[in-house]
Design a protein around this nucleic acid. Structure first.
Lengths: 345, 345
DNA sequence: AACGTTGTTGGGAACGTTCCCATAGTCAAT
DNA sequence: ATTGACTATGGGAACGTTCCCAACAACGTT
């Protein structure tokens, strides 16, 4: 009970006034010298004052600064959940990008529930964020209109609505690359574990799939396309359905790594081997998939690049229609889960 | 180019003064009526003023409020990384717990690098957090002393240094349960993929392992214990080393699910089947492990409970020595990766 | 009727910073 | 020497809220 290792009394704060007094200049000057927004100012005194501030242990009070400036330097990020590694990767990249421009991100989650993004945005805006980055865009929702009306700067990422400023991966290309890879390996009957159709990331990849199939002159049986919720369980269910078809596919392209993992598990439980009996390709290249017993072929998304572009879009005053949606190129990473196929086997 | 869907001019803010004017009372009264910290106040006028505030779309300016109150209502959380699902689960639980007490969490990551927690704490403190929750405690580091000196309230979580306020899982019990489970199944030679010895979570589980082995009268060959970095790759390497022993183990307890996944992969590549040739138990019960081709037996940690306790510790003025370290009970979740063993096979 | 006790109210001064503006200083060109 | 055009400086007023305190009202007790 005697020496509780927390909470002695806090030291009194060193203010800009203390620094001013110590340096023999006015608070206004100190404020100017310490203003990170104007790069020049390195006169004789400026440097001296800055050094004194450091020596005295001065740290700017963000509350006071934000109050006066009308900006907090915080950007709100909305993701479905952080326990989805893809979203965690995105968020970490966004946090890095923010730090690079002297800003800071705070995050709120929606669990992918329909109305939750509005609530999340509200919480973040109450906290005083200067802008929002949303990865929860849904086709046919007017939530973004509300943000526009309120004058809140925002950018969509990973998923776009096709209208608002967005920084996304080229999902169509990614879907094409994945499917094309399987076609090149000799597969003809390729199943698709699609995503929910409210997400542009999912529909884009489906589009890429169709494009690759069409280009190869392969007809797509509608039965080959099964939707999912992006979840592992859901991917397993879709895989089971695909394998229950009279002419089951020899390869499956899963809309993301989660559904691919679910599929892997379901296939294994059906006594099917990946890649001997069936090839499998995922999407996102989350760390775990390269370390599975059968390392998964997947499509890598350049998150850092997407995050950087998102911040550029967020901070630019106006953006031409052409540049409103920034698209980053994905890369296919071939691994053991996909292998050549010949029809006779 | 014409209708850029972001940035019209922002509306002028509704202040407490506007509300006061509209309601015909003083700003002081409005401030009091809207103060969430005092629950009582529901006089006639109080309710009327509150309603007017809502109708006018008033939202409190956190910067001004924080400046005056000297508190921001933000708690900083430091984790190694969010792309580790365990840490993401922890953070989400902490975020929930914070929301329940009207607070908000912001997060910074360290990548588990030695000095990075100090930097992360600095960033968060500059942002004005009222306190810190650290999951990066290391044995034999004096970083926490610095926080104590500066008068910053903080709590350790998941990992403890044994001195400061902490909210952790009972790692010794968890390690015991996992090992005991394998012993009960008939295993006698049980390998351990330990963690880095700077983390109390890892050393606690090792302790539990030793306890269970000792209790069963089983000698522990030092060769059976391999350290790791908590990473997938590292778990695979440890598993390979274990299986290279002249008398290789019939079961492996991995310090966390990541190393278990790495082990699973390595074993599979050695042509060994889990659980037929060897049993495997992980720790943390991250979502993916229950959906692997061989669902993994794991130990579940009550994150919500740990998060709640962390906030209680953070906000309580004084804490008796006995209650300084709060310990939550883990639960073993048996799945297919562990099965009975008899020596003759 | 005078007294404390309790509760509610509004005026005004903080909180620490930034920004506007007026003043003073420097230099070059007239 | 006077003007003009800059640049560096400090005083003071914001920013929106909370908190202190004094004023007042309402009540029951002596």
């Amino acid at each position: 009970m005697k020496s509780d290792r927390t909470k002695p009394e806090a030291q009194p704060r060193v203010t800009i006034l203390d620094v001013a007094r110590a340096a023999g200049v006015s608070k206004s000057s100190v404020s100017r010298f310490l203003d990170e927004r104007m790069p020049k100012s390195d006169s004789e005194t400026a440097q001296r004052v800055r050094q004194i501030a450091i020596d005295m242990g001065y740290v700017r009070d963000v509350s006071a600064s934000s109050l006066r400036r009308g900006k907090t330097g915080m950007i709100g990020v909305i993701v479905p959940r952080l326990t989805d590694t893809v979203m965690a990767m995105l968020y970490e990249s966004l946090a890095h990008a923010a730090a690079r421009s002297g800003q800071f991100t705070i995050v709120a989650t929606t669990e992918d529930e329909p109305g939750a993004d509005r609530r999340a945005a509200d919480i973040l805006l109450r906290r005083g964020v200067d802008g929002l980055i949303l990865s929860t865009a849904r086709h046919g929702e007017d939530f973004t209109d509300e943000l526009v009306d309120r004058g809140v700067p925002f950018v969509l990422t990973l998923r776009t609505d096709g209208k608002c400023r967005s920084s996304v991966g080229d999902d169509c290309l990614g879907g094409y690359l994945a499917t094309r890879h399987l076609i090149d390996l000799g597969h003809r009957r390729i199943g698709l574990i699609a995503g929910p159709n409210y997400a542009s990331s999912a529909t884009g990849r489906v589009e890429g799939y169709r494009k690759a199939m069409a280009e190869a002159g392969l007809a797509v049986d509608p039965e080959w396309i099964r939707s999912s919720t992006f979840g592992i369980e859901s991917g397993g269910e879709a895989a089971r359905q695909l394998m229950a078809l009279k002419e089951s596919p020899s390869a499956i392209f899963a809309i993301n790594d989660n559904t691919a993992i679910g599929a892997l598990s379901a296939l294994s439980r059906l006594g099917l081997s990946v890649p001997n009996d069936i090839s499998l390709v995922g999407y996102n290249d989350i760390p775990v998939v390269s370390h599975l017993p059968t390392p998964l072929t997947s499509v890598k998304i350049p998150f850092e690049q997407i995050a950087t572009a998102a911040f550029e879009l967020l901070s630019s005053e106006t953006v031409s229609a052409r540049e409103r949606i920034r698209v980053a190129m994905p890369t296919l990473i071939p691994r053991s889960s996909s292998r050549p196929w010949s029809e006779k086997s």
